[in-house]
């Protein structure tokens, strides 16, 4: 079996074993216990414990500086790239400890993709941008397989029709919304299990935002998505689960509808009604 075939097989295996279409009986994908992050002497996140279900969209909301992005970045250990960041506590993906010394962040990040606030396509062609992940991880045996992966990924990201005839143009030549979808296509090209999105629409206009939100909803079918967002409307639109962070702590977590219609915590109530934020 070539890596490509494994890739295809992997995708189907997951759908069979992980997806429980029955409401309320999600399988837990990501489970954290007491996650704390320090930047130097400054504590950015204190003791967050949460269980995130598979094949759903979970959104993190909260005022600026509440630690939601920091938490997101610890899930695929992107905080490793920051010199003075220290992460403690436990983060389990499918029961495996992420912060274990034996876990290679390279492998982890192949499983947990990430999309950033500002679209950051590499200074390469559209094709090379999407092909980059499969290339470095050796997922395609030949050019045909790679072409297939690129096409599938771009299709899943809903970008194929717009760029099919100009794959050899630089990724930076696309519009902002297109760039963000390109980056999403790049992330799903390695078929990750979890996709982290850090305010994916904050740099986009409303039309592009709507397009991305649609895409997120489509992706839910195959991937576990975690989204940090500033827009409560967006959280309400795209996510099934919502977590509210405040001052580095997780205040409230539950099904989106509940959080927005019947928050249990006063701070959540204040935030979603716009008293502060």
């Amino acid at each position: 079996m070539t890596a490509y075939e494994k890739l295809q097989a992997g995708a189907s295996v997951r759908q069979e074993t992980l997806y429980h279409p029955v409401e309320g009986s999600y399988t837990t994908k990501v489970a954290t216990k007491n996650v704390t992050v320090h930047y130097g002497d400054k504590s950015a996140l204190n003791g967050v414990s949460i269980e995130i279900p598979a094949c759903t969209v979970t959104s993190f909301i909260g005022p600026s500086g509440c630690g939601k992005s920091t938490f997101l970045r610890s899930i695929n250990r992107m905080n490793d790239t920051i010199d003075n960041a220290r992460v403690s506590g436990s983060i389990l993906i499918d029961g495996e400890e992420v912060n274990d010394r034996n876990v290679d962040p390279v492998v982890l990040r192949a499983r947990v993709g990430m999309v950033f606030q500002k679209p950051n396509p590499f200074p390469k062609t559209i094709y090379e941008n999407v092909a980059y992940g499969p290339r470095i991880h050796g997922l395609a045996a030949d050019k045909d397989q790679l072409d297939a992966i690129v096409e599938t990924s771009l299709r899943k990201a809903g970008l194929w029709d717009e760029v099919a005839d100009r794959l050899d143009q630089p990724g930076t030549s696309l519009s902002g919304g297109q760039q963000q979808r390109l980056v999403i296509a790049r992330a799903i090209a390695v078929n990750p299990e979890v996709i982290l999105m850090d305010e994916p629409c904050s740099a986009l206009d409303p039309i592009a935002t709507a397009r991305i939100e649609e895409l997120i909803d489509e992706l839910r079918e195959n991937y576990t998505l975690i989204i940090v967002t500033h827009s409560m409307a967006q959280a309400a639109r795209v996510s099934q689960m919502t977590a509210f962070f405040h001052l580095g702590s997780l205040v409230e977590y539950g099904p989106t509808e509940e959080i927005f219609t019947n928050p249990r915590d006063q701070r959540t109530q204040d935030y979603i009604t716009g008293r502060f934020g």
Binding site: V106, L108, R109, A110, V115, F116, N120, I136
Partner: peptide, 15 residues
Amino acid sequence: VPQSLRDGAYAMGAT
């Protein structure tokens, strides 16, 4: 070179 480009690569699992 902006850090976001490096982040993009790391997030793809690049060494």
